[in-house]
Design a protein around this nucleic acid. Structure first.
Length: 447
RNA sequence: UCCACAGUAGCUCAACGGCAGAGCAAUCGGCUGUUAACCGAUGGGUUCCAGGUUCGAAUCCUGGCUGUGGAGCCA
């Protein structure tokens, strides 16, 4: 007797009326005596399998009745359309004729009831099987693919930058240090400086990989290990950068809308907010942003809220400021020309107004905060030298970077995009911890 | 690092100075259309840890640990 062909649940609509084999895990099970319902999960979807006592071998029917949640099984049966059948995609079910058990799962900790965050994060290795997490991580993969696809199509070359580095990428943030054969080394917090070297070799480049920040940040927007996409392009101006970012982001959102209606429905995302994300995005200067915030603070009744929104020109935005600014627009908003003093040393000052620089951050709507940050870079060798010595960076560690300005320096610009914040925004999640398979946070590195 | 809140059964929670409880999960039984099925039964506790107050502490006090939310910093 031959075994029916193995199919994937995502492809089930193409097999109605056929005898098939499915392999996977028991998502849920219930029975009505001589009738059993087994929801089977195979990674591509979930389908309801129906076992009637009269259609099956008695021993197999008895075994099915003992199936525990997440037991691994192989089943055979006939696919039929059935409006009552739940699942992903749903609307189809399999009338079982055979079943074999690969392993009977022990008591599964994650039940179909609600659980707390700590418990779920402790069982992250199992939690990723849940349909909500399944949907989020599939959308994350599409976001990564869309971002890279757009860049590849626009002539940006993927050039990887190192993760183990000899010194800080920028001056401020704390780094994770490692022992490099007796010498200190650090996990990269950005690939940007290397990107600038690669830009001079390939014109338009990007790097995409994990970055590490040893800051003791404890918020819904921070991870110790997160993925950052960093494009860098020769001869790009700040205006070029904004035009590029709005195309890249709107393309990515569109790809998610095209490919993941099912997943967006599972996580109950309000897609109307995403359908709105089309170029051009709003653009306001830092000056205007401060004015808007001061006006808003003045009009705010609640004294506590007014205190949170207080800002003077020259200060960086805190998260209440970013949220308030983003709420003034129904799509992402660029804020450009930040004060030079609060930005990184390599950012190009605005001509005739050196107290501000050619920098731009993109704030996502709905309170998700900064999802990209970028700038034109200083290309004048003397100015860059001056900046490096002024803030007391170790000259020898940056010698190679300063070299770039000595051999054919050109105007150029680039930005970094935080992947997890972008995923959180597009998925409408309250916290970045669910946007990455295994989050590394202040109080968590397990599992 | 700072501020606020929390920790009770495998999970989610109740009990708030006087016998340690419920729902789900587990186990056993029933049911031919379940959608987090339903019905009946059974088992399940170092009330985070250490000290203190009290006739009596899950409950009040002190210290610690762990977590959650927020701030700062940042993407």
């Amino acid at each position: 007797m031959s075994t029916p062909p193995v199919i994937q649940i995502s492809d089930i609509a193409n097999h109605v009326g056929e005898e098939v084999t499915l392999r996977g895990w028991v998502y849920n099970r219930t029975d009505k005596g001589r009738l059993q319902f087994i929801q089977l999960r195979d990674g591509t979807g979930i389908v309801q399998c129906v076992a009637f006592k009269k259609d099956m071998d008695e021993a197999q029917f008895q075994q099915a009745a003992k199936l525990t949640q997440e037991s691994s099984i192989v089943v055979t049966g006939t696919v039929r359309q059935e409006g009552r059948a739940p699942g992903i995609p749903g609307g189809y079910e399999v009338g079982l004729s055979g079943l074999s058990v690969l392993q009977m799962a022990e008591d599964y900790p994650i039940t179909p009831k609600e659980h707390g965050t700590e418990f779920l994060m402790d069982h992250r290795h199992l939690w990723v099987r849940s349909s909500r997490q399944w949907a989020i991580l599939r959308i994350r993969a599409t976001i990564v693919r869309a971002l890279r696809e757009w860049l590849d199509n626009e002539g940006f070359l993927l050039v990887d930058t190192p993760i183990i580095t000899p010194a800080a990428g920028e001056e401020t943030t704390t780094l994770f240090s490692i022992d490099y054969f007796g010498e200190p080394a650090y996990l990269a917090q950005t690939g940007q400086l290397y990107n600038e070297a690669n830009m001079a070799a390939f014109g338009r480049v990007y790097c995409f990989g994990p970055t590490f920040r040893a800051e003791k940040s404890k918020t819904r927007r921070h991870l110790m290990e997160f993925w950052m996409l960093e494009p860098e392009a020769a001869f790009y101006t700040l205006e070029d950068l904004m035009a590029m970012e709005e195309q890249l982001i709107s393309y990515t959102v569109q790809q998610v809308l095209d490919k993941h209606r099912t997943e967006l429905a599972i996580i109950e995302r309000d897609v109307s907010r995403l359908e709105n994300v089309t170029a051009p995005f709003a653009r306001i200067s830092y000056d205007e942003a401060v004015e808007r915030l001061q006006k808003l603070a003045a009009e705010t009744e609640d004294p506590q809220q007014r205190e949170l929104l207080h800002i003077e020109w020259g200060e960086d935005f805190g998260s209440p400021h970013e949220t308030a600014l983003a709420e003034m627009f129904d799509k992402p908003v660029f804020v450009y020309h930040y004060p030079t003093a609060i930005k990184a040393f390599y950012m190009q000052p605005v001509e005739g107004r050196p107290e501000v620089c050619r920098s731009v951050d993109l704030l996502a709507p709905e309170g998700y905060g900064e999802i990209t940050g970028g700038s034109e870079r200083i290309y004048d060798p003397e100015l860059l030298e001056e900046r490096v010595s002024k803030i007391g960076l170790p000259r020898e560690a940056y010698a190679w970077y300063l070299d770039l300005r000595r051999y054919g320096s050109v105007p150029h610009a680039g930005f970094g995009l935080g992947l997890e914040r972008t995923v959180a925004w597009i998925c409408g999640l309250p916290h970045v911890r669910e946007t990455i398979p295994y989050a590394r946070m202040l109080n968590r590195k397990y599992p």
